[in-house]
Structures are given as structure tokens and as C-alpha cells.
């Protein structure tokens, strides 16, 4: 069982939900990213998504676009993110998934990517511009070598597409809570819960919800029916606010701890 699946299994037994945090690798630099991952683990985060910087992040809103640009300015590329994970694995067993656009992976070479990712300790990969039907090659390699491929369901997905994603996703299913790009929204989209119920008709795999979730109240609400809650832009914004401050890692950690409390204080 992969680290991701195992984490969900452990949480399920305790009747708890997963808190999944996204940060852009290399924003503002790789050393900070490393400290952030370790800090977030301390603050109760269950799974970490590491964003691989890309020049054309078309599923992302302004916050993550800016983070991606900062990381690219620091010359952080896919190979550096793989190196970072390898380095992190000396210190932590927290499940790690890479969130990357397809082109850097394609250019790296699918087989080389999967092999090095697994060897370095990456547990899963999320590729927002790779739907399951285009991801066959990657999926079969990943399956063979033990890397989770996490596909996404959107509010516009038809039943047929939900089934397709449910079947091919491994680790968990990523439900995109709204039609739009990543970014903080004041209010949660409507009809998230009924859609999760709909997806559950086709699968026993864990379902995590992301996009637009930014405060403890929203986290709590999502956690009341989903298996995991993903927060990205709100955390990245916290990083941005603290750029150049010595206390960046601690400040972001404090912020995330409050978000995690949205889940944990339920019991």
C-alpha cells in the first residue's frame, strides 16, 4: 500500500479526515520549502502536495502563478523538486505528491520521471492538464512502479467521466470544488456535498476536495463529508505575505495549524 493510501486508511480507522497542504516548491527557495514541509508535518498536516513550477500554469489563479514565477526565477525545475523530495525522505515519512503540469514531465521522459520519483520517495502525482484518457502511458508506468496517479473530477464532469476518473485514480480522487482556477474564494461553491455523494456511488477510494478553500470554517464543513481537504492558495498567500521575513516558516505553520484545527477539534 502506498504512503497515501495508508494514511487515509489510518485516518479512516480513527474516523478522522486528511488535511492536505499545497505549497509551491522553490517558493521562495528550496531550503525554505524543505523547512516548510517539516513544519507543516509538525502542525498536523497529513499529506503534502508540492507544486512543480511551470511557465504556463493555466489551471492556476494569480496567487499560485506568482509563486510559480518566484520559483522559476530561482531556477527551480522538476529535477530540483525530485532532489528536494529525496532530501526530505531522510527526515520524514509524510506522504508527498507532486502537482505538476504535463509538459515538464513529458519532456523529462515518462519512464525516467516515474522511476526517479519512486526512487526518491514521491508517493503520487497530480497533473491538472492530463485527463485519464491522455494519461494511459503514465498511468501504466506509475502502476507498475508504485506511484499513485491522482486524477480530478470537476463540477462539470458527466457520470461517464466520474466513472472513468474513479476507476483510474489511485491514492485518492481529487474533487475540484468549483468551475474555475485555483485561488481563495470568500464562499464555498454550492452542491459540493451532493457531488461527493454521487462520486461515492462508483468508488470506495478516498475523495479529497480542493480549490477555493481558505479558512477553518470551510475546512470543517468540507471535512464533514469528504475524506480529505486540500488547501493551496491560502497557504501560498501566507508564504507571499511573509517573504523576506525570518519568521516565514513559523508564521505559515501557525496559519496552517489553525486550518488543521478545523478538522481535528471536531471530536
Amino acid at each position: 500500500m502506498s504512503r497515501i493510501a495508508e494514511k487515509f486508511e489510518q485516518l479512516r480507522k480513527k474516523e478522522e479526515k486528511a488535511f492536505i497542504a499545497f505549497i509551491t516548491a522553490g517558493d521562495p527557495d528550496l531550503i525554505t520549502t524543505k523547512s516548510l514541509v517539516l513544519e507543516l508535518e509538525q502542525r498536523g498536516v497529513d499529506i503534502i502536495e508540492l507544486g512543480v513550477p511551470f511557465s504556463d500554469p493555466l489551471a492556476d489563479g494569480p496567487t499560485i502563478q506568482a509563486a510559480s514565477e518566484r520559483a522559476l526565477k530561482n531556477k527551480v525545475r522538476l529535477k530540483d523538486v525530485l532532489g528536494l523530495v529525496k532530501d526530505l525522505r531522510r527526515e520524514t515519512e509524510i506522504p508527498l505528491a507532486l502537482l505538476t503540469y504535463y509538459n515538464p514531465v513529458y519532456k523529462y521522459g515518462l519512464e525516467r520521471f516515474v522511476k526517479e520519483a519512486v526512487k526518491g520517495g514521491v508517493d503520487g502525482v497530480i497533473i491538472p492538464d492530463l485527463p485519464p484518457e491522455e494519461g494511459k502511458d503514465l498511468r501504466s508506468l506509475a502502476q507498475k512502479m508504485g506511484l499513485d496517479t491522482i486524477f480530478l473530477v470537476a463540477p462539470t464532469s458527466t457520470l461517464k467521466r466520474i466513472k472513468l476518473v474513479a476507476r483510474y485514480s489511485s491514492g485518492f480522487i481529487y474533487y475540484v470544488s468549483l468551475t474555475g482556477v485555483t485561488g481563495v474564494r470568500e464562499r464555498l461553491a454550492e452542491a459540493i456535498k451532493p457531488t461527493i455523494t454521487k462520486i461515492r456511488r462508483f468508488t470506495l477510494k478516498p475523495i479529497a476536495v480542493g480549490f477555493g478553500i481558505s479558512n477553518p470554517k470551510q475546512v470543517r464543513e468540507i471535512a464533514s463529508f469528504a475524506d480529505g481537504v486540500i488547501v493551496g492558495s491560502a497557504i501560498v498567500r501566507k508564504v507571499e505575505e511573509n517573504l523576506g521575513h525570518k519568521g516565514l516558516v513559523r508564521e505559515v505553520g501557525k496559519f496552517v495549524e489553525e486550518l488543521v484545527a478545523g478538522i481535528r477539534d471536531r471530536e
Binding site: E133, A154, T156, T158
Partner: peptide, 14 residues
């Protein structure tokens, strides 16, 4: 060619 887009757009393309 192909369809390398976010899931949100897949149904719209169909």
C-alpha cells in the same frame, strides 16, 4: 493533437 486540458473543460469539449 489530443485533449490535454483540465477536467472541467473535458465535457465542454465533448
Amino acid at each position: 493533437g489530443g485533449k490535454f486540458v483540465p477536467e472541467t473543460l473535458m465535457s465542454a469539449l465533448d
